[in-house]
């Protein structure tokens, strides 16, 4: 029973990371109805930026803040330069551009930082607390997740800019008629997704270690989480993240072992897509044929 509880708790901790990644995916999906296959590599790249700063002697939290800000700017730049020209292109072209972006980020990171695994510091102590059920890092991750969620909720719900972003995603023509610069709202969405992804990368790097391929599995679980919760529903995606985190841990401990983690994600993704394509809380899935 204690072991079970421990599995659930640490599942919730990794689930927090999946929730953040899912949130980043949902943000871009809501604005553009596209799934960003390069989201994981963007987060990986951001984490390397943080590593560079910390390695150069910058204290953790200033480096964290700078990384989030830098990622925000990079996300906007990527949307403006790479994504904008194919905005109205067929899905296949957009997917190919996303994959191109994924490959470029992955190889540039490998080029600059090599493929050797690096350790990444956690801002939280590593010892176990609460009777050994959960590590301080895991608890810290959960707190950061909740912080990100609350910030995003407040931003989208209560600020004029957040409202404008929601409006632009929903009805671009009407948005232009009230004076919203829709193109910039999309870019802003990319910036936010990149910033949020950076947080996920920095939270997960102390656990999985830093290397150019570190986000592949996490992105896959992020997909599963977003789909499970409903890919157009931010709150659902977060819930999906925690559920998927716990499922992953329980499946790893009691069913298939850790060697098939990615297969569990594959089964989850295909299962949700086939059985309940709008997710648990999503509106009816809109597909661009």
């Amino acid at each position: 029973m204690e072991a079970f509880l421990h599995q659930v708790l640490s599942g919730l901790a990794t689930g927090g990371i999946y929730a953040i990644v899912a949130l980043a995916l949902v943000m871009i999906y809501q604005a553009t109805h596209l799934v960003n296959f390069a989201q994981g590599e963007m987060a990986m790249f951001s984490t390397y930026l943080a590593w560079t700063m910390i390695d150069a002697g910058v204290p953790y939290w200033p480096a964290f803040a700078a990384t989030v800000a830098l990622s925000f700017v990079l996300g906007i730049a990527i949307e403006r330069i790479v994504i904008r020209p194919v905005e109205k292109a067929p899905v296949l072209a957009v997917v190919i551009v996303f994959i191109g972006l994924l490959v470029i980020l992955n190889s540039v990171a490998g080029w600059i930082y090599t493929y050797t695994i690096k350790s990444f510091p956690s801002p939280f102590p590593t010892h176990r607390i609460l009777g050994g059920y959960v590590s301080a890092h895991e608890l810290g991750v959960m707190a950061v997740t909740m912080g990100v969620l609350v910030l995003l909720f407040v931003f989208f719900r209560f600020t004029p800019l957040g409202l404008a972003m929601r409006a632009a995603a929903q009805n671009p023509v009407s948005s232009r008629l009230v004076g919203i610069r829709v193109g910039w709202m999309l870019a802003l969405g990319w910036g936010l997704a990149a910033a949020v992804g950076a947080v996920a990368g920095m939270m997960v790097a102390p656990i999985v270690f830093l290397d150019p391929n570190m986000m592949a599995g996490i992105l896959l679980y992020g997909f599963a989480a977003a789909l499970l919760g409903g890919i157009d529903n931010p709150a659902g995606a977060v819930f999906g993240g925690f559920v998927v985190g716990v499922l992953e841990n329980l499946a790893g401990a009691y069913l298939v072992g850790t060697e098939l983690k990615l297969t569990v994600a594959l089964v989850l993704i295909v299962g949700v897509l086939v059985m309940r394509p709008s997710g648990l809380f999503g509106r009816v899935l809109v597909t661009r044929v």
């Binding site: 409202l163 404008a164 929601r166 409006a167 929903q170 009805n171 009407s174 009230v178």
Partner: peptide
């Protein structure tokens, strides 16, 4: 009419005054 259907009435009005 160009309504923002998923937003509330008040949010629609706030958007009108966006600029």
């Amino acid at each position: 009419r160009g309504t923002f259907v998923a937003l509330s009435v008040e949010e629609n009005l706030r958007l009108g005054a966006y600029t």
